[in-house]
């Protein structure tokens, strides 16, 4: 029997039928949708990295007695970098598995994926997605937020003269001193930032739920044994921070609102 007849007989006998077209279409479109999804996830990583880089305490890093390089490496968002690289690798593998993915050579494909992720990530950063992600993580997982944003840890060293936290209570204790209670999940206990008339404040003042950075000195209230931090300078948590303008500004003593509006930082 010739092979042609044998094949046709086998199809007939075993009732072999072609696999439905929709299954292949599902796979084809599924792979491209997955590519798009991975690209967007990678771009979220880029947007977050750009956001964190621009808000990386460039205005105070030398106050921490660090060189620019040491500061850069100690605050690099390694988890975001890892997520971005993972998405890039998965995107590469995914595109390779598309119907015509084999046609692309590795290097141009990697550069195309990298370039597209970076461009899309920059776009997302400019519309504020990086900041939204950072805010979301900080609000929903305050205890783990420093894994995504290592500067939270770098700013949580009152013994070195730097403290960060979210303002939960503002209490005017006298005409000249204000106690600002801050919440910082990386530090034990409750921290009180003491604001004196000589303290340099942000031009917009301090509001409840603001995240602040304070430069100063750790002290301890002997009576209450609470952690206190005598602030010389209080800065908003997220500033562009490329120009340490606060150093040049004259001392400003702005009224601290007791019931300020909540700001998204």
């Amino acid at each position: 029997m010739d092979i042609k007849q044998k094949i046709l007989d086998t199809i007939e006998e075993k009732q072999i039928t072609p696999i439905p077209a929709w299954k292949f279409l599902f796979r084809t479109y599924g792979l491209w949708i997955l590519s798009g999804f991975l690209l967007v996830l990678g771009s979220f990583g880029v947007a977050s990295m750009v956001f964190l880089f621009t808000k990386n305490d460039w205005d105070i890093y030398n106050e921490l007695n660090e060189s620019k390089i040491t500061h850069l490496f100690s605050t690099l968002p390694y988890l975001w970098i890892a997520i971005f690289l993972l998405m890039l690798v998965l995107l590469y593998i995914d595109i390779r598995h598309t119907k015509r993915g084999y046609k692309y050579t590795s290097l141009p494909l990697v550069f195309a994926a990298l370039g597209t992720s970076i461009l899309l990530g920059l776009g997302l950063h400019f519309i504020g997605v990086g900041q939204k992600i950072d805010t979301l993580i900080t609000k929903t997982h305050p205890g783990q937020a420093h894994i995504f944003n290592p500067r939270l840890k770098a700013l949580s060293h009152p013994e070195k003269g730097i403290l960060t936290g979210r303002v939960i209570i503002i209490e005017a204790t006298s005409s000249s001193t204000t106690r600002v209670y801050v919440e910082n999940p990386l530090l034990e206990g409750r921290w009180i930032v003491i604001v004196e008339p000589t303290t340099i404040l942000p031009p917009t003042g301090i509001h409840l739920q603001d995240r602040i950075r304070a430069l100063g000195k750790e002290t301890e209230d002997v009576e209450t044994e609470e952690h206190e931090f005598l602030a010389h300078v209080i800065l908003p948590f997220n500033t562009m921070g490329l120009d340490p303008g606060w150093k040049k500004r004259e001392r400003q003593l702005l009224p601290i609102p007791l019931h300020g509006e909540e700001y998204e930082d």
């Binding site: 094949i7 086998t10 199809i11 072999i16 072609p18 696999i19 439905p20 077209a21 292949f24």
Partner: peptide, 13 residues
């Protein structure tokens, strides 16, 4: 034979 049978099953691809 396997080649042709596979081609038949995957013809929509």
């Amino acid at each position: 034979q396997e080649t042709f049978l596979k081609a038949y099953r995957y013809v929509h691809n």
